[in-house]
């Protein structure tokens, strides 16, 4: 994807990109350097496409929506987890270091398998509606208070990009930790009246040191979340609720 017109007064951007192909045993991790003229309104997504089209055809990275919705283009941008499609190069210094998100299976270069991790988390925490009754397909859906729907929607905005996991010091040390994305999911289903689980059920899922009680409250997750989800509040709330259940 080319066609980004260089700005007449654009900076020369120096990209340092961590590259590695774990499928090839001979491929050792290395930093490749690329130079690119900055264009007006250029995002990292556009810059990476430009580099791939003109300088490094084998450079691998993920993207789908280009609008911060799919969560595919998460990467470390100058050390901070973020979405390439949502990051303007103008917001960064002229030297930009890119690396794959840590904590996930590396596919190649900047591409990591967040999907596999998220599926594992989802199965482990059973992040779906647990309904005792069969849905009545021919009748109207049970109404929900707009305020409650708003609260659920607020947590449902998570795009599972993996930035919170990459920013989580606890997860970097303990790979069984569920991370903020998992606890946010539990918070979301706990709110949902269609889910018949109670706190005893949720305690079984996150009431241990791999769950909410393992969180060291470093809050990297909250500070790097590209969707600005209230992860700090959610984790504290879940911790209080799980403790209250344990003290019953």
């Amino acid at each position: 994807m080319s066609g980004v017109a260089p700005d007449a007064k654009g900076r020369t951007l120096n990209f340092q990109i961590l590259r590695c192909n774990p499928q090839n045993e001979a491929s050792l991790p290395r930093i490749d350097h690329f130079e690119l003229e900055e264009a007006s309104g250029m995002t990292l997504f556009l810059a990476l496409n430009e580099i791939r089209d003109t300088q490094a055809p084998s450079l691998q990275f993920d993207f789908v929506c280009r609008a911060g919705i799919c969560g595919s283009c998460g990467m470390l941008i100058n050390g901070l987890p973020g979405l390439a499609c949502r990051t303007l190069t103008s917001s960064l210094p002229s030297t930009i270091t890119l690396a794959p998100l840590p904590g996930f299976e590396l596919i190649r270069d900047l591409s990591v398998n967040t999907g596999k991790w998220m599926r594992g988390m989802s199965e482990r925490l059973e992040t779906w509606i647990h309904d005792q009754e069969m849905p009545k397909l021919c009748s109207m859906e049970t109404p929900m208070e707009p305020e409650l729907a708003e609260q659920i929607y607020e947590l449902e905005r998570c795009i599972e990009c993996g930035c919170c996991i990459a920013g989580c010091g606890t997860y970097q040390m303990r790979e069984d930790f569920v991370g903020a994305v998992g606890m946010n999911q539990i918070g979301r289903f706990r709110l949902d009246p269609r889910d018949k689980r109670d706190d005893a059920d949720f305690y079984k899922l996150v009431g241990d040191d791999d769950g909410v009680f393992g969180c060291m409250t470093l809050l990297g997750c909250h500070d790097v979340c590209p969707k600005s989800l209230p992860l700090q509040t959610q984790i504290a709330f879940l911790r209080r609720k799980m403790l209250a259940h344990a003290l019953k």
Partner: peptide
């Protein structure tokens, strides 16, 4: 219980801190 329990864990979290440059992680 929250301390790194091996040198590998210590090395990993130290690298994480130096890459992320996040104040609350550094405070930890």
């Amino acid at each position: 219980r929250k301390f790194p329990s091996s040198y590998q864990q210590y090395k990993t979290i130290l690298a994480h801190k130096s890459i992320l440059k996040h104040s609350d992680t550094s405070l930890w």
